[in-house]
């Protein structure tokens, strides 16, 4: 046979869906959690607490902390001014032109309980922040993209795997619109059909 055998029609069926996708918001992640696979994670406020409350060694707790700090540098929420940051997260630090909250502990996932036979006792670690804004999330533990882990005090928390996926690195854009001008200049040429020309070929 010279053609594809079976194609997944469900994926391609758009119904009345338009092509514009909504960003994956916190609400979407949260509502997915019912059906998605859950994972048990541990929240620790410090390396010391990590050593005391988990099966991880000092070296592993250190490594997990460093991973989380690295991740925080890339993915922590960013604000133009300190006041906006403080309104949501209390204490914030300046990072060359923007502000981000101080990390308030970290979570470790994929703890390996069999300590006899392991290279590294955890899967991943993630930075967390304490939300200090108003409303129902006040004083709750939050991840970089706004997933609410829960209130402090529990040894372990159940989180959807979706929320533990690698977070996109966030930056601060200083300009937009630097691509596309060439196409726009070319489209001025045939005004009768400029509305829907393809830029492919």
């Amino acid at each position: 046979m010279k053609r594809s055998s079976i194609l997944d029609l469900t994926r391609l069926r758009k119904n009345t869906r338009t092509f514009i996708l909504a960003p994956v918001s916190l609400a979407v992640i949260a509502s997915c959690s019912g059906g998605a696979k859950e994972e048990q994670v541990n929240f620790v406020a410090s390396v010391d607490e990590c050593v005391k409350t988990t099966d991880l060694s000092q070296a592993e707790c250190d490594a997990a902390y460093k991973d989380a700090v690295k991740e925080a540098n890339a993915t922590a929420p960013r604000y133009q001014n300190e006041r906006d940051c403080a309104a949501e997260f209390g204490s914030c630090e300046s990072r060359g032109g923007f502000f981000m909250p101080f990390m308030a502990g970290y979570i470790v996932s994929g703890l390996v309980s069999d300590s006899m036979n392991r290279n590294r006792g955890y899967g991943s670690s993630y930075p967390t922040y304490m939300y200090r804004g108003g409303g129902q999330y006040r004083n709750k533990i939050m991840t970089s993209d706004g997933y609410v882990v829960g209130s402090p005090g529990q040894r372990s928390y159940s989180m959807p795997k979706e929320a533990l996926k690698p977070k996109p690195a966030v930056t601060r854009t200083i300009s937009r619109g630097g691509f596309g001008a060439t196409a726009s200049a070319k489209s001025n040429w045939g005004s009768s059909k400029s509305s829907s020309r393809s830029w492919g070929g």
Binding site: V170, T171, R172, T173, I174, R176, G177, G178, A183
Partner: peptide
């Protein structure tokens, strides 16, 4: 969208949500 791509101070490209 191509026209919505932005750039940060390190000349990295980002989308409308400022994701790299």
């Amino acid at each position: 969208y191509i026209e919505d791509i932005g750039v940060d101070k390190d000349n990295q490209f980002a989308d409308v949500d400022n994701h790299l």
